[in-house]
Design a protein around this nucleic acid. Structure first.
Length: 587
RNA sequence: GCUCCCGUAGUUCAAUGGAUAGAAUAUUGGUCUCCGGAACCGAAGAUCUGGGUUCGACUCCCAGCGGGAGUGCCA
């Protein structure tokens, strides 16, 4: 009887506690199947986990919550793994025993066992659609969030066992090409000979062209003609367009390489331009869309807003727009790739668009009795300028993404040189890159993605306090300890001792919450939950490190502390890798 | 007009409806014979206003106030 009820050492201990509470309440008259344990991590002062479910349950049943809590505790089989107590109005606190910590540390011993423990039961094929810059322009600060958040989510999905397809949905078929082609021809520019920074040249040309057409109706007409020629397949314009795309991709790839991002596909809107006609036909056939003022639009009568606000899928001049290509894209990803889930990582200002897109797709797929992939819009806040307005490309000075990245690397370089005056240049550069890019990534990923923030160099490039380099520093120090003892982290044997000192226990305790942090990050698709957890783990480590000397005479104490270091290192390296932040052995 | 997002220490950010709202930074006092001071320990400092729901509200609902966004042919 106690066999199946006995506590298993789970990656997430709250799972075991929840299961046992459900088992013992299920057959009991006082509780029954409707009892929800509500197991949460507890405040350190009270224990390690708490079950809050007694309070609402007692209220509903008209019982005294403390009495009921007492009853529940009475039903619990004795365990060497925890102590329970009732507190406040009826919280049940679980304080895990040193034995539990010892067993947990023994069981989850390397990246492999962490990964296995975190794996989902049913892996899915998930498309992550992110970054998606427009060709003919440089990537600017506005693109950093999609790129970094998207990559992090992709890594997270992979970590828990999903199959991930990274797709860079390039904006390579917009109206910008009319203006750009016009400018190229008028200035008689050769795209083969744009010098060392071709993308900047293109961008300047576009800006120039944009200025012309604004003031001159005649030039606007000519630019439109170039666009029409391109869309009709004019070979000259098509060749120029392809060349522009190649130049753009070169510049994007430089940034992706720095950031460790690799796409499986970069299909872009142009890929779908010939796939929209059948979509129109199908949606018309199913009476999902209607013609309205010359355009083809979708209304959703059941929706308070979209019953009036149209989703325009074909413009009145017959041309497609991003709604058209997005529809075709969903169909392609489902049919060709069998995607079960599609995640779009874009600016929050596109929320209406995606809401309308998703509703339309669901109706469409439902009519055809096709399985509709799970569609999620992972939106993020705007990066604002000093004036609290979005940083825009057209006016003002857009901050180029490449400049931001390089600036951070330069700042890191100065610090690395300051700390290591004799280090050779190549190693300085290597470390500076990892530290500088880590700082930027962490700055963005450590805050809730849905919030806007005002752009500031200081914020993005900070290297002290709650920052990427702080986490990297802890990793480097752990490596340093292992160098000192001449052992590798995976060579550390289990100590006979469980965590005993205050900071040993606190550190071990924090390690247990890794799984919870992963789950919460997945549930909300918000990497800052993981970032916050890693920061908290790091502060526990730093505290432990300064209060407990690791390399001591007594072997069992030494190995206990070394194993805590090894496990902390493992969690930090896995977690930081999910955030896309590289680590160093020395910094 | 309608819809959505956001108002938390001086500043920048946290807080699956749960116990005394956590950090960073700035200010300030310590650690400084230490396995790496990019560190550690301490002090001080905050939930926009008013109602409501709840055993319990930063969190949910309503009304204000303030900031931002979207709202038919850009993406």
């Amino acid at each position: 009887m106690l066999g199946y009820r006995s506590m298993f050492i789970e990656f997430d201990p709250s799972v075991s506690i929840d299961r046992i509470l459900r088992e013992i309440t299920l057959e009991n008259d006082a509780f029954g199947a409707s009892f929800e344990p509500q197991v949460r991590p507890a405040d350190e002062r009270f224990g390690d986990f708490q079950a809050n479910g007694i309070l609402p349950f007692a209220k509903k049943a008209g019982l005294n919550p403390r009495d009921l809590a007492q009853k529940l505790i009475g039903l619990l089989p004795h365990s060497d793994f925890w102590e329970t107590s009732i507190a406040g109005p009826g919280f049940i606190n679980f304080k895990l025993s040193p034995l539990f910590f010892k067993k947990w540390i023994e069981k989850f011993k390397n990246a492999e066992s962490f990964r296995n423990a975190a794996e989902v039961k049913k892996p899915q094929k998930i498309v992550v659609d992110f970054s998606s810059p427009n060709t003919a322009k440089q990537m600017h600060v506005g693109h950093i969030r999609s790129t970094i958040i998207g990559e992090s989510l992709a890594r997270l999905f992979s970590f828990i066992g999903h199959e991930v397809i990274r797709d860079n949905h390039l904006g390579d078929w917009g109206t910008q090409f009319g203006i750009l082609l016009f400018a190229i021809k008028k200035e008689n520019i050769s795209l083969e000979d744009l010098g060392t920074d071709p993308i900047t040249k293109l961008e300047n040309l576009y800006r120039m062209g944009n200025g012309w057409v604004k003031d001159d109706e005649n030039k606007l007409v000519q630019a439109r003609e170039e666009l029409v020629k391109l869309q009709n397949g004019n070979p000259e314009n098509l060749a120029l367009w392809q060349k522009i795309k190649d130049i753009s991709m070169d510049s994007f790839l430089g940034i992706y390489k720095m950031l460790g991002v690799q796409f499986d596909y970069s299909l872009g809107e142009s890929f779908y331009k010939n796939k929209v006609e059948p979509v129109y036909e199908k949606l018309l056939h199913h009476q999902i869309c209607v013609e309205n003022a010359g355009a083809l639009v979708v209304f959703h009568p059941e929706h308070k807003r979209f019953s009036k606000q149209p989703f325009i899928i074909r413009k009145s001049d017959g041309a497609s727009n991003y709604a058209s290509t997005d529809l075709a894209t969903v169909e392609y990803r489902r049919k060709e790739w069998q995607s079960e889930q599609i995640i779009y990582v874009t600016d929050g200002r596109q929320r209406d668009h995606f809401e309308q897109l998703f509703m339309t797709v669901q109706k469409w797929f439902s009519k055809e009795k096709n399985i509709c992939p799970i569609l999620k819009h992972v939106w993020f806040g705007t990066i604002l300028g000093e004036d609290n307005k979005a940083i825009k490309t057209r006016d003002g000075e857009p901050i180029k993404l490449i400049d931001l990245l390089n600036e951070s690397i330069e700042r890191a370089k100065a610090l690395v040189v300051e700390k290591n005056p004799d280090l050779e240049n190549s190693e300085v550069s290597r470390r500076a890159k990892i530290i500088g890019l880590g700082a930027i990534r962490y700055a963005d990923l450590s805050q809730d993605r849905t919030l806007d923030y005002v752009f500031s160099w200081e914020k993005l490039l900070a290297m002290q306090g709650n920052t990427g380099p702080y986490l990297q520093y802890a990793v480097a120090r752990i490596h340093s300890i292992f160098r000192k003892v001449g052992l590798k982290p995976n060579e550390i044997r289990i100590s006979d001792y469980p965590p005993t000192s205050d900071s040993e226990k606190k550190l071990a305790r924090k390690l247990l919450f890794f799984s919870g942090a992963i789950k919460q990050t997945i549930k909300e698709l918000k990497p800052h939950f993981l970032g916050t957890y890693l920061y908290e783990l790091t502060t526990e480590f730093s505290s432990f490190y300064s209060q407990n000397k690791v390399v001591v005479e007594e072997n069992e104490i030494k190995f206990l502390r070394l194993i805590l270091c090894a496990r902390t290192l493992c969690v930090l390296e896995i977690g930081l890798d999910i955030l896309g932040i590289e680590t160093l052995q020395e910094m």
